[in-house]
Amino acid sequence: MQSYLEVFTNEFSQIKSNEQKAKLLEVVLRIGTDICCSHEIVVNCLLILANFGNEKHAHKFISYDNVTRRLLKALESDDKKINKGEILDALKRIVTDDDNSNVIANSSMLDWLLSNTHEGGSDEIQQKCREVVAALTMSETSKEILASNQKFQKIFPKHQFSLGDILATKRYAQIWRRNSAAKTEQNRSIDGDEEHERKRHVMISYSWKNEDVAIALKNLLESNNIKTWIDRSGVTLDMMEEIAVAVENCSHFLSLVSSHYKQSVYCKMEAKYAVELEKTIIPVHVEEGFVPSGWIAMVTSGLRYHEFYHADDVTSENCSALVELLTS
């Protein structure tokens, strides 16, 4: 049996007139905001509006108090027919609009989202909750609301989201691409000497779980006059531009490979960007017994790797080959 969304998709795709499409979306809007409709119908209306509507449609929809309450009821439900992942993906999409973001941040759903970022439900649901919360922080007003929320501050001190996490959001991608385009254009205008100067540093990309090894590597490389770039503040939304520039201007990209690195959406984004820019990637294994798979295996396959499982392993003797590689 087809889902409501599949049926709507088939019908919507056959409509040629934009006016008729707008009228159909208004019908969906009226159905979803009817006080008598079930939370299952509300969910399907959300999916339709998130996939086919615009920010105006979405804002009208979620601004109804009964809508956010019923969406919350659906998220709290044990009903197997309700796909919580789809609901969270839809929320992530619509909160890229500031007005929609503020509605969710001020609703009872915020507490559920925060409570499920690291506990309750599957790993996939926890990940999607973190992505929605991260998207909320992109709005200045919502960020202020979150800043005064004790649960948010406890879970994400200093707005750190690098716990296997975040930001496959539409706005994140837009900011990243826009920054990339601007910096690429800027680089075209500088001469070779200046560009060489800017691209001297080695970027150390790591999960905060392996911070001790990352810092040890930073200190040893710099003691050998090798300039490094490393994020010490945790990957926050305010750091996105700086991280993008760091990837663009690095001569080598050290990828500190571990299970935590594999789980981190931020680390994946950094590595993917380095691949796109054809940077020299050097994998460094920092977790004993971890066998790269999935996207990490694709990025590092065939590359020579180094092993430093503990900060104490990062010695001049053990790092001689790495230092030679970076200075050759």
Rank of each mutant, 00 (worst) to 15 (best):
K151P: 01
F156L: 10
K183I: 13
T169N: 11
A216F: 04
V213L: 04
N224Y: 04
S148Y: 00
L217S: 04
N219D: 12
T184Y: 15
Y206V: 10
V202C: 14
I204P: 00
R200V: 04
E194W: 05
K143L: 15
L221I: 13
E194L: 04
H196C: 01
V202G: 12
E211P: 01
A181R: 09
S207C: 09
K143I: 01
L217T: 10
A134S: 11
A168E: 09
Q174A: 02
H196I: 00
P157I: 10
E194V: 15
L217A: 14
D193W: 07
H201K: 11
R171L: 06
L217I: 07
D165V: 00
T141L: 04
R171V: 07
N179R: 05
Q160S: 03
L136K: 04
M138V: 03
S142P: 03
I175P: 01
L220I: 14
W208S: 13
Q153S: 08
L221S: 03
I190G: 12
Q174N: 02
E185Q: 13
K218G: 03
L163G: 10
V213S: 02
T184W: 15
A135Q: 14
F161D: 00
E211A: 15
N187T: 12
I166Q: 06
A168W: 01
S162T: 09
V202Q: 06
N219F: 08
I166H: 10
T169I: 13
D165E: 11
I190N: 11
K143D: 02
E140Y: 01
E194N: 12
L136C: 04
H159F: 10
H201D: 04
H159K: 09
M138N: 15
K170C: 02
E194S: 14
Q174K: 07
G192K: 14
W176D: 00
D193Q: 00
I190S: 11
R200P: 00
R200E: 13
E144Q: 13
D165F: 14
M138K: 02
V202A: 06
I190C: 12
V202K: 08
K183F: 14
D212K: 15
I226L: 07
P157Q: 15
D191P: 14
R177T: 11
N149W: 03
M203D: 01
Y206R: 09
G192T: 09
N225E: 11
I155C: 07
N187C: 08
E144M: 12
A214K: 10
E195H: 11
